[in-house]
Amino acid sequence: MTGFRPTILAFCCNWCSYAGADLAGVNRLQMPTNVNVVRVMCSASVKPEYVIKALSQGIDGVLVLGCHIGDCHYMTGNHRTAKRIPLTAKVLETVGIDSRRVKLDWVSAAEGDKFQQVITDFVEVVTGLGPNPLREVRF
């Protein structure tokens, strides 16, 4: 699997994680470059169907980042995320996609370093898993 660079999609909520990602950038923290950040208004806008669609189209890993519980701009938005995303991961594993390809974490606007850490770790895990098997599946 040498030279495999996974394609990663990171959904970041506008109010915390995207700001966190920004901070990481401003601080010039070194980060893997194969992560595509998608800014969403709240982690709750990341519905399971988006995660599933991304994976079924061959994205190797999906990261969902939101505010810490209690800090969501929309009060309980991330409570919803905290239930939906683990369920999505579990169901994916049930039908044969490794659940480690989906990860949920909380990153606040002040946690540039945590953002770097989460991204780096996730890329490492997904690199270890190899390419998304659905890339090869033609329907």
Binding site: I52, K53, V95, F139
Partner: peptide, 15 residues
């Protein structure tokens, strides 16, 4: 066929 996502979205939506 409609692909993998069709069935998974249905699964999760009715979970």
């Amino acid at each position: 066929p409609p692909g993998f996502a069709f069935h998974l979205i249905r699964s999760i939506h009715l979970a």
